[in-house]
Design a protein around this nucleic acid. Structure first.
Lengths: 110, 110
DNA sequence: TGGACCTATCGTAATATTGCAATGAAACAA
DNA sequence: TTGTTTCATTGCAATATTACGATAGGTCCA
């Protein structure tokens, strides 16, 4: 059917999956890397950096904004994007709590 | 079109996106949580725990296996799944390198 | 052998995602 | 005002994902 049966899962499971979904495209990874590296914000610059058409980049930016990972603010005729630091750190710790370190060779099975 | 233009991205970007895609469904998060918690492996147990049909769970397991996050081995008439520890730790550090901690309020823009 | 179990795979339907051309909206400069 | 620049939105086509019934292929036990 293609529709997730969301009533089966806990809020945490859904939140983690949403975060992962926001990261689940190389273009969005590339956008975040740009924003992390340049710290200062970008906009149409991203279009030429990434190599996708402007509407496509705009759509990816929308998804990242919806996930709370970035923010955008109008700055004259341009729009300034940057990492949403507070949310970023929250998501980071969410992921870290899930992605616990495992001892190299426990393998109590398999 | 629905097909990612993968030639535009670096191997690292594609790898991170693939990892995120593997985690981008609450059922797969739930499966991993089960495997992390019970340490020992599961199989048909997961079907009743998750609440999805058996073919659906089997499909999610296949994706997690393809992503290298879990392994499955035949154990009599059952199949024993568990976290692929080595790969897990590698993916973890991959994600950590990307998801760097950010100072609470730098905001050199926006 | 036959039946009971467990899991993978196939086939299919419903839905979601990706990508872009065309267009719209807002800011700015001449 | 008119034109330019910048970005969002709309609409659509192509592809991917999600879910499950039906079925196939194993193991195990009697």
């Amino acid at each position: 059917m293609g529709a997730t049966k969301s009533e089966l899962f806990t809020p945490l499971q859904s939140e983690l999956a949403s975060l992962a979904k926001a990261l689940a495209h190389p273009a969005r990874i590339a956008i975040l890397q740009e924003l992390l590296q340049k710290n200062s914000c970008q906009c149409g610059e991203l279009v030429s950096t990434i190599g996708l058409a402007q509407p496509t980049v705009s759509q990816h930016l929308k998804e990242l904004k919806h996930a709370g990972l970035i923010r955008g603010s109008i700055e004259g005729s341009r729009i300034c994007y940057c990492i949403d630091t507070t949310n970023w750190n929250r998501q980071k710790s969410l992921l870290e709590d899930f992605f616990q370190e495992l001892p190299p060779l426990p393998q109590s099975c398999c």
